[in-house]
C-alpha cells in the first residue's frame, strides 16, 4: 500500500479508478471504466438516468463490490481493503445522498452531531458549537431542532450537506444536489459547493444530470453513457468536444419520434403507418 500512497502523492489524484466492471446478475452495468478525480477540485460526473453513474458512486463509496477492477481512494484500494481500513477511510469522507438520507428518528442537530459523538471524544459544549458552525455554513441555523420530516427538499439537501462536512472531510461526495429543486435553491447549493472547495480545500465529487449547474461548478466534467465514460475534460473542453454522443447530451437532442407529432400520436393510438 505504501507504493500506492506514493503514487497518489505524485499524480495528485484523490481517486483513481482502473478497469472497473460491474455486473448485476447477468446485466453489465459498468464496462471497463477508468477515472481520475484530482485533489482539491470539483469533479462532476454527468449522465442521463440509467447510465450507471449511481452504481459508479456506490462502488467508489465502497457500498458495492465491483466484479473487476481497482479503486484507489486517498491511496487505499477499497476493493481489497478490510472493514477497518474502509472505516478509517470513511472518517475522511463525507457523503450527501440524493434523498438526504437523514435519520428520521433524530432532529437535524442530532443528525449532524452523530459522527462527532461516535468518532471523537469532544465534550458536549464543543459538539454543540461545531454543530451550529456547520448549520450556519449551510444557512440552516434555525432548523437545528426540527425533524427531517418537517424539512423542504432544499433544506433536506442542505442539512445532508452539513452532516457530510461535520468531520471536515478531505473528500466530499454529493449525489444529485439540484434534483427536484427550484433554480434559486439549486444555485444556492452550487455556491455552497464552490465555497467548500475554496475555503476548506476539499476534493468534491458531484454526480448530477443537470447541465447548467454542472458547468457552473465543475473544474472537470466526466460524461457517462451506457456504462462507460465518454469523455473527461474541463468544462470548456467538453463544450467543444467532437464526440457526437457528448454533443447529443449537451444539446438535449430529443428522440426524433417526439418531434414528429403526427407519427408519435399515431404510434400512441396504435395505428400502424
Amino acid at each position: 500500500m505504501s507504493s500506492s500512497t506514493a503514487n497518489h502523492g505524485v499524480t495528485g489524484n484523490a481517486i483513481e479508478v482502473r478497469n472497473l466492471t460491474v455486473d448485476y446478475g447477468t446485466r453489465r452495468i459498468l464496462t471497463d471504466i477508468d477515472l481520475d478525480i484530482p485533489s482539491g477540485k470539483v469533479s462532476v460526473i454527468m449522465g442521463g438516468s440509467g447510465t450507471g453513474k449511481s452504481t459508479l458512486l456506490r462502488c467508489i463509496l465502497g457500498l458495492k463490490q465491483p466484479t473487476a477492477g481497482s479503486i484507489h481512494v486517498l491511496g487505499t484500494d477499497i476493493t481489497k481493503a478490510s472493514t477497518r481500513q474502509l472505516y478509517q477511510l470513511r472518517k475522511q469522507t463525507g457523503v450527501a445522498f440524493q434523498g438526504g438520507a437523514l435519520f428520521s428518528s433524530m432532529t437535524v442537530g442530532e443528525n449532524i452531531q452523530l459522527a462527532l459523538r461516535e468518532h471523537t471524544e469532544l465534550d458536549e459544549n464543543t459538539i454543540q458549537i461545531m454543530t451550529r458552525i456547520k448549520l450556519d455554513m449551510v444557512n440552516m441555523l434555525h432548523a437545528e431542532h426540527m425533524m427531517p420530516s418537517e424539512l423542504s427538499g432544499g433544506m433536506t439537501k442542505r442539512a445532508a450537506l452539513a452532516r457530510a462536512i461535520v468531520m471536515d472531510p478531505k473528500l466530499l461526495f454529493f449525489d444529485e444536489p439540484s434534483a427536484g429543486l427550484d433554480p434559486s435553491t439549486s444555485a444556492e447549493l452550487d455556491e455552497l459547493i464552490l465555497m467548500l472547495r475554496d475555503s476548506l480545500k476539499m476534493t468534491i465529487v458531484v454526480v448530477t444530470h443537470e447541465l447548467e449547474s454542472a458547468f457552473k461548478i465543475a473544474d472537470r466534467i466526466s460524461i457517462m453513457g451506457k456504462g462507460t465514460i465518454l469523455a473527461t475534460d474541463t468544462p470548456e473542453g467538453i463544450r467543444t468536444s467532437s464526440n457526437p454522443e457528448v454533443q447529443g447530451l449537451l444539446h438535449r437532442k430529443p428522440r426524433t419520434s417526439v418531434l414528429d407529432t403526427e407519427a408519435h400520436l399515431k404510434a400512441l393510438m396504435g395505428v400502424r403507418s
Partner: peptide, 25 residues
C-alpha cells in the same frame, strides 16, 4: 418497518459512509 424504511431511503448506507457500523448502531 423501521429498518426497511432506513434501507430504502439510504439511511443505512449513510451510516456506513459515516464509518458507523449499522450492525452495532
Amino acid at each position: 418497518a423501521e429498518l426497511g424504511i432506513m434501507r430504502t431511503t439510504n439511511q443505512i448506507d449513510a451510516l456506513e459512509c459515516m464509518a458507523i457500523s449499522p450492525d452495532k448502531f
